[in-house]
Write a protein that binds this DNA or RNA. Structure first.
Length: 233
DNA sequence: CTCCCGCCGC
DNA sequence: GCGGCCGGAG
């Protein structure tokens, strides 16, 4: 399959069904999750969010006022817990500066997409992927999210070099997606994550992969599971 | 042991 | 570009 992100979306949706990520959660919860999930599995993030909620700290005002020693034990299970305590509080301080401490969903309401994106990137602990996840899933802005799964999949499909830059890959996705289509962008990223966890893992399991016939990686013999027992290492 | 929806500071 | 941050699951 030549590079075609809409076709990819179609095939993944056929394989895995619609995902509807984060529809029920509050925007603030999505923002917290986006920060906590940095280099961390989502199951641990859910635990931490539950613990914050039970402690009554799942709102920006409370998080900002809380002592770091209060937050750290609750974030411990996500790893980098001291770092993430600082990042969460930095983000809440940013919400306060923007005048939406108690209305996080209104963040950047008056800003255009790229102005708001630049603001987010200026916050300590918010990089491109975190910023775009917040824009797309918490604030419902139309922007394509790139992550490690996206890079890996694009490379294995034969669409890119091994390490395309974030901006380069994002531009290529944006060039093919209907402008302003939020739902397609949300579903595409969600489905790429599912694909990345299920089949296109760092140790790929290509045998039952829905993209097997479209993928140059599998066709090149990249399926490591095929090699188990044949290699000594 | 590796891997997990990265980012910062050097 | 690279190491540090960090715990938990497989």
């Amino acid at each position: 399959m030549p590079e075609d992100w809409q076709e990819l979306l179609t095939r993944l949706e056929r394989a895995f069904g619609p995902q509807h990520w984060w529809p029920a959660d509050s925007p603030f919860e999505v923002m917290v999750g986006a920060i906590l999930t940095q280099n961390t599995s989502w199951t641990q993030v859910e635990r931490a969010i539950d613990q914050l909620r039970e402690a009554g700290l799942l709102n920006a005002g409370a998080l900002l006022e809380a002592a770091p020693e209060t937050l750290e034990p609750l974030l411990r299970c996500t790893g980098y817990y001291r770092l993430k305590t600082r990042r969460l509080q930095a983000f809440c301080a940013f919400l306060k500066r923007e005048g939406c401490l108690d209305r996080p969903e209104r963040l950047g309401a008056a800003d255009d997409l790229y102005c708001l994106r630049r603001k987010l990137l200026s916050v300590y602990g918010v990089g491109e992927e975190t910023a775009d996840s917040i824009l797309l899933y918490a604030l419902h802005r139309p922007i394509a999210v790139v992550d490690a799964y996206t890079r890996r999949l694009a490379y294995r499909l034969g669409w890119t070099d091994p390490k395309p830059s974030y901006a380069a890959l994002q531009d290529r996705m944006e060039a093919q997606l209907p402008p302003g289509d939020i739902q397609k962008r949300q579903e595409l990223h969600a489905l790429i994550v599912v694909q990345g966890k299920t089949f296109c893992r760092s140790r790929p399991s290509c045998r039952e992969c829905p993209l097997r016939r479209d993928c140059t990686y599998g066709a090149r013999g990249g399926d490591r599971e095929d090699l188990v027992g044949l290699r000594q290492g």
